[in-house]
């Protein structure tokens, strides 16, 4: 099953076999959200990334390695009927290097007749002794729709689709594009599971476009 999914990811990434870098892996995530005081929410996020294949071809040999582990905390506050502000901090361990990221964001969530629509605007700043500082501005829209019927209810499947556009500055400018497609399932007590594909492309305006494809699975828990 893993080989089939890797093959699908590889096919998606095979746009042009000249001057491309490919990275394929897995991206498990865990989110735990708790209600604080009034309109304040605290979310902890654990994410790790494993690389299965990396090189100039998406079909080269499989070689599993743990690339990074992140732990993040976000405080969010509702500031309008559909909007929330967020401040976050991430601590990353990648190899022997530590990274620190500060995040500021605004999310707008709309419950439409047959789907939910989210817009997210983020600024983040990443610092590490291993690299120069990285600054990003990000916009993402996400659609969440029921697999069947008009509403997403408990014990039902849903589909989530999203595109993200990221402007990056680290010594020089770059642009990153991400797209996500997944299937989710709603468990009781507002718990959600998601499984899907996360595709990313950066270094778009250079001679060597970098493609990344991850098998993504996420667990959202709200105790």
């Amino acid at each position: 099953m893993i080989r089939i999914l890797i093959a699908i990811l590889g096919i998606c990434l095979s746009v042009n076999l000249q001057s491309q870098i490919y990275k394929i892996g897995t991206l498990p995530q865990l989110y735990i959200t708790s209600q604080l005081y009034k309109d304040y929410l605290l979310t902890f996020k654990l994410e790790s990334r494993q690389i299965i294949n990396e090189g100039e071809s998406p079909f080269s040999s499989i070689n599993f390695k743990q690339e990074r582990s992140d732990i993040s905390a976000f405080i969010r506050k509702r500031v309008g009927f559909n909007s929330k502000l967020a401040l976050g901090y991430m601590h990353r361990l990648q190899g022997k290097d530590l990274y620190h990221r500060w995040t500021q964001g605004l999310s707008l969530i709309y419950k439409k007749k047959y789907f939910n629509l989210g817009h997210r605007f983020l600024c983040d700043q990443t610092y590490s002794k291993a690299e120069s500082a990285k600054y990003r501005f990000r916009y993402r829209y996400t659609l969440e729709l029921p697999f069947k019927g008009q509403e997403i209810n408990t014990k039902e499947i849903f589909i989530k689709l999203g595109n993200e556009y990221i402007s990056v500055w680290q010594d020089e400018g770059d642009f990153e594009f991400r797209t996500l497609a997944c299937i989710g399932y709603v468990l009781p007590s507002n718990t959600k599971l998601e499984l899907g594909i996360d595709y990313r492309a950066n270094q778009i305006f250079t001679d060597q476009i970098a493609h990344q494809g991850y098998l993504y699975f996420a667990f959202y828990l709200k105790p």
Binding site: T33, G118, K160, K192
Partner: peptide, 9 residues
Amino acid sequence: EDSRTNIEF
């Protein structure tokens, strides 16, 4: 309300 964490993050 339903949790929307999965489309906010």
